[in-house]
Amino acid sequence: MKLGLQLGYWGAQPPHNHAELVAAAEEHDFDAVFTAEAWGSDAYTPLSWWGSSTERVRLGTSVIQLSARTPTACAMAAQTLDHLSGGRHIVGLGVSGPQVVEGWYGQKFPKPLARTREYIDIMRQVWAREAPVTSDGPHYRLPLAGEGTTGLGKPLKSIVHPLRKDIPIFLGAEGPKNIALTAEIADGWLPLFYTPRLADQYNEWLDEGFNRPGARNTRETFEICATAQIVVTDDPAAAYAGIKPFLALYMGGMGSEDTNFHAEVYRRMGYGDVVDEVTELFRSGRKAEAAAIIPNEAVDDSAIIGDEAHVQKEIKRWEAAGVTTMLVSPGSPAEVERLAALVAE
């Protein structure tokens, strides 16, 4: 099992200790450092900033939103960082949801799977540099032509020669069709709320993708980097209380009331009634009550809380389920060191 440091996205202010956490991750043999974005801080700027002080850890996005950048702009950023880091970049992509895509970026959300496939094809054309980049669309037509254009667009080839033509692309997928697409066209999967309890179900969806004609990877060459809150403690109650507000936000407050992909993940886990109640409370402003009704079992499904022996046992269970890397969010360099030691043992 490998560990990745998940720095996430910023809150109201920039975090104060990320430089220390990244240094500790590098020192204690973490495999990677990841950043994220929502509708505030972007992912690439902090990743480049903190990554410039490292020499070994891989530098990933978990995730950047497709609609924030055109596919060629994303490919440019990726090959630039890959050069600057000596070939350590991982592009983690996600479609986000209609509220963010249409409300924040002013882009169209429908057909997310088709958009993802087209987006990745264009990125790989940029890195291959075998010919000028073209795309018949319909989502990212290159060169753009027709009504409202000058008609002067021309296919172009990247000025920069990429350090690697196969920069790895991971997808943040949650639904069965998206997970199968991930196995077919990507190099790794970035599940946000993974539970080993449903590993057989995930593997069925992944196998559908692996078995498609032209699939890019096999299970042996594919990575699963699952976000996992790991809290080593003799006071589990405090840890549960700290995580539940986060779950309440994602269950009840992300997306619209009837279009929340994170909520659907928990429905598939068997918590449909909990999701309904959390959503009702959260959207009526009763956020503390929404968090309080979440059962400990729902936290345990996608987090590990307990003493060292319990944590080590659970890490082995996640590994047996197929997870290759656990993306963790320790709060201090000491916690980074402690987690690294537990995995090493």
Score class of each variant (00 low, 15 high):
residue 131 A to Q: 13
residue 152 L to G: 01
residue 86 G to Y: 07
residue 88 R to W: 01
residue 108 K to G: 03
residue 99 Q to E: 09
residue 145 A to V: 10
residue 67 S to C: 13
residue 123 M to K: 07
residue 91 V to W: 00
residue 81 L to R: 04
residue 69 R to Q: 05
residue 101 V to E: 10
residue 91 V to G: 00
residue 89 H to S: 09
residue 55 E to T: 15
residue 62 S to N: 14
residue 90 I to H: 01
residue 152 L to F: 10
residue 74 C to Y: 01
residue 101 V to P: 03
residue 155 P to R: 07
residue 118 E to A: 13
residue 132 P to I: 10
residue 127 W to N: 10
residue 142 L to I: 15
residue 143 P to A: 06
residue 168 P to C: 10
residue 125 Q to K: 14
residue 124 R to F: 00
residue 134 T to R: 13
residue 75 A to D: 05
residue 62 S to A: 15
residue 115 R to M: 08
residue 167 I to T: 02
residue 56 R to H: 13
residue 172 G to R: 11
residue 144 L to G: 02
residue 72 T to C: 12
residue 161 H to N: 14
residue 125 Q to S: 11
residue 164 R to H: 15
residue 152 L to E: 15
residue 114 A to Q: 15
residue 124 R to K: 11
residue 103 G to R: 12
residue 125 Q to W: 02
residue 156 L to K: 11
residue 103 G to Y: 03
residue 81 L to A: 00
residue 92 G to H: 06
residue 101 V to A: 03
residue 162 P to Q: 14
residue 154 K to Y: 00
residue 172 G to K: 10
residue 141 R to P: 11
residue 151 G to T: 11
residue 132 P to R: 06
residue 77 A to S: 05
residue 54 T to D: 08
residue 87 G to T: 12
residue 84 L to Y: 12
residue 140 Y to I: 06
residue 66 L to P: 07
residue 106 G to F: 02
residue 120 I to F: 09
residue 88 R to D: 06
residue 133 V to E: 12
residue 147 E to M: 02
residue 69 R to K: 08
residue 93 L to C: 02
residue 106 G to Q: 02
residue 92 G to V: 09
residue 133 V to R: 05
residue 148 G to E: 10
residue 98 P to M: 12
residue 98 P to W: 00
residue 61 T to P: 00
residue 153 G to N: 10
residue 143 P to I: 14
residue 127 W to K: 14
residue 132 P to C: 03
residue 101 V to D: 06
residue 126 V to H: 03
residue 171 L to H: 03
residue 149 T to Y: 01
residue 84 L to A: 14
residue 138 P to I: 13
residue 88 R to F: 01
residue 153 G to C: 00
residue 70 T to E: 09
residue 97 G to E: 12
residue 146 G to C: 08
residue 73 A to P: 00
residue 92 G to Y: 05
residue 89 H to E: 04
residue 123 M to H: 04
residue 159 I to L: 07
residue 149 T to C: 00
residue 104 W to E: 09
residue 131 A to M: 05
residue 89 H to F: 13
residue 132 P to L: 06
residue 151 G to W: 05
residue 59 L to K: 08
residue 62 S to M: 14
residue 74 C to K: 00
residue 171 L to K: 02
residue 78 A to I: 07
residue 142 L to E: 09
residue 111 K to P: 01
residue 124 R to I: 01
residue 138 P to Y: 09
residue 163 L to V: 10
residue 95 V to K: 01
residue 96 S to N: 09
residue 56 R to V: 15
residue 161 H to G: 08
residue 164 R to I: 02
residue 99 Q to C: 00
residue 138 P to R: 11
residue 136 D to G: 04
residue 113 L to G: 04
residue 154 K to D: 01
residue 151 G to H: 05
residue 102 E to F: 07
residue 66 L to E: 07
residue 58 R to V: 06
residue 70 T to V: 03
